Simulated scan of single mutants.
Amino acid sequence: MELKKNPRANVGRNSSLYFAVGLNVMLLLTYLGLEHKTYESEATKIDILMLTEQLEEEIPITTINIPPPPPPKQVVTQAITIVEDVEEVEETFIESTEIGQDDIIEERVVSVEEVEVEEVEEDIEVPFAVIEQVPKFPGCTGSNDELRACFQRKMNEHLQKHFRYPQSAAELNIQGRVFVFFKIDKFGNVNGIKSRGPDKLLETEAERIISLLPKMQPGKQRNKPVGVPYSIPINFKLQGQ
């Protein structure tokens, strides 16, 4: 005999509907749970309390002392008195200095007074090689060629007599050739001494030797004393080098 079930007693007949409804309800609860926002009540109360304290704080009233404006300047009025002219001033008439066609030009003879012309002596220099009469070194005599040779001989004797090697230059092993330039002026004096060499110590010693030259008879060009420039080399060499 087959048993027949009551369709009302069948529990699984609406199971799919209940499952769908339950799933939707869970999704809705999950969405509301994620979107729900909560705030800490203590932080909110503190913020409100601090805000009320700031609002209730009294702001002191400050007054600005503005200095009063300066008083207006007093206007000084001067009384103007009109004084009548007592003395009459004569007007002066200035004649024109322009010359017209009808004016006659007066002829005058202008005399030029004699003007004294001062002769200025020029400091002429003639090289030693071309001068007509060379400067005379003390003790030299003879013709111009003999005086020239004697001058050079006396110059070498003077260098050997007064030559002295600088001690500091010898210790530093400084040696070389120094060219000395000087001039025998129209009075026979030696001046304008200049030197050029490898070291200042040697240049100073060469200038010292030339400064000891004696006074000479000046050289002459067309029988007039002139300055004569002259140059001479001085060798500084240590013995055994």
Rank of each mutant, 00 (worst) to 15 (best):
Lys5Cys: 12
Gln160Tyr: 11
Tyr165Trp: 11
Cys150Gly: 12
Lys136Pro: 07
Ile184Tyr: 00
Pro233Ala: 09
Asn156Tyr: 03
Glu35Met: 08
Glu91Asp: 14
Leu201Ile: 04
Arg108Asp: 10
Val86Lys: 05
Glu125Pro: 08
Gly142Thr: 00
Val86Gly: 05
Thr63Ser: 14
Pro7Ala: 03
Leu27Ala: 14
Val110Ile: 12
Phe236Glu: 03
Thr141Val: 14
Gln78Met: 09
Asn24Asp: 05
Gln133Lys: 01
Pro127Met: 05
Glu42Trp: 03
Asn173Cys: 02
Asn235Met: 10
Arg153Asp: 15
Glu90Pro: 08
Thr97Lys: 11
Gln241Cys: 00
Phe128Glu: 00
Ile82Pro: 04
Leu3Phe: 14
Ile105Thr: 08
Cys150Ser: 10
Met1Ile: 14
Ile59Asn: 04
Ile232Ala: 00
Thr62Phe: 15
Asp145Asn: 07
Asn189Val: 05
Gln217Arg: 11
Pro72Arg: 05
Glu207Arg: 12
Ile80Leu: 12
Pro7Ile: 03
Glu35Val: 15
Glu132Gln: 13
Val120Tyr: 12
Arg8Ile: 03
Ile59Val: 14
Val112Pro: 04
Ala149Asp: 14
Arg222Val: 15
Ser143Pro: 12
Lys161Asp: 15
Ser143Ala: 13
Asp185Trp: 03
Val75Ile: 08
Glu203Asn: 08
Val178Ile: 10
Glu2Cys: 07
Ser143Met: 09
Pro166Lys: 08
Leu49Cys: 02
Thr141Asp: 15
Leu49Phe: 08
Thr77Asn: 14
Val109Glu: 15
Asp47Lys: 10
Arg196Ser: 03
Gln74Ala: 00
Phe163Ile: 07
Gln239Glu: 15
Asp145Ala: 11
Ala149Arg: 07
Ala129Leu: 15
Gly33Asn: 02
Leu159Ser: 13
Glu121Asp: 09
Thr77Pro: 13
Asn156Ile: 13
Leu17Gln: 09
Asp103Val: 14
Asn24Pro: 01
Met155Trp: 06
Gly100Ile: 09
Ile210Asp: 04
Gly176Leu: 07
Cys140Pro: 09
Gln101Phe: 02
Gly197Ala: 04
Ile48Asp: 09
Pro138His: 00
Glu56Trp: 07
Leu159Ala: 12
Gly227Lys: 04
Lys237Gln: 12
Thr63Gly: 07
Glu53Leu: 13
Ala206Lys: 00
Val228Trp: 08
